[in-house]
Amino acid sequence: MSQTAKIEMLGVQKRFGENRVLRGVDLSVAPSESMVIIGGSGTGKSVTLKCILGLMTPDGGEIKVDGENVAGKRGAAREALLDKFGMLFQGGALFDSLLVWQNVAFRLLQGKRKLPKDEARAIAIEKLRRVGLKEDAADLFPAELSGGMQKRVGLARAIAAEPEIIFFDEPTTGLDPIMADVINDLIREIVVEMGATAVTITHDMTSVRKIADKVAMIHEGVIQWTGPVGEIDTTDNAYVHQFVNGLAEGPIEAIR
């Protein structure tokens, strides 16, 4: 019997005015799998994630999470769906009016799973420790942290409620190579440890090799190739070959 995909996208389309960003995305992510979507800037990677989360409404196609169609979910049903997700945003997207621990514990302090403040703070501090931050950082504001520390806080916030699915949007962008490697290691460790399904979008090939079980290459709003991470160097797919090797010549047009 085949296992139900954790996330399944079938012919998903999205356009902004005349710009057709997604032109029929088909993607399947198995439970506890770490899928990395690669592709150039503006190829629809972030839009793909936002469509799954319902932050954008697709113009066509179908998106299923745990076999359930996510389209048109509202109120409690949408909340229940979003409870499955955690997300690390590219810029961190930390709430700058809240302290670090309040950011991490945000989900634990709201809604039906609301915990007492002390308990939520204790969990936040434990998650901060998990991502390599000391307790002192808990009472700082996000603006007082370095870029690397903000990413760690974002990661702690994404995992605080122990979600089943975690999205990572360009997790290493803007970080120095050493900090990027630390974040990559943390992501891999945490995803394995939690048994979560992970979808990462990046164009950093070091991240891809560290984080991915499977890789999907998106270009011109279509998934051009999907396969195990071990095959990205050997595949004969021209798009993947050009992207992985960073070549100016190939089917992906490079604007000079």
Binding site: E79, D83, F89, G91, L94, F106, Q110
Partner: peptide
């Protein structure tokens, strides 16, 4: 600023 820095999207992903 919250829109531009994706804080509003982050709120949604945190079931708020």
């Amino acid at each position: 600023t919250m829109r531009v820095t994706e804080q509003i999207d982050a709120l949604s992903t945190l079931s708020t």
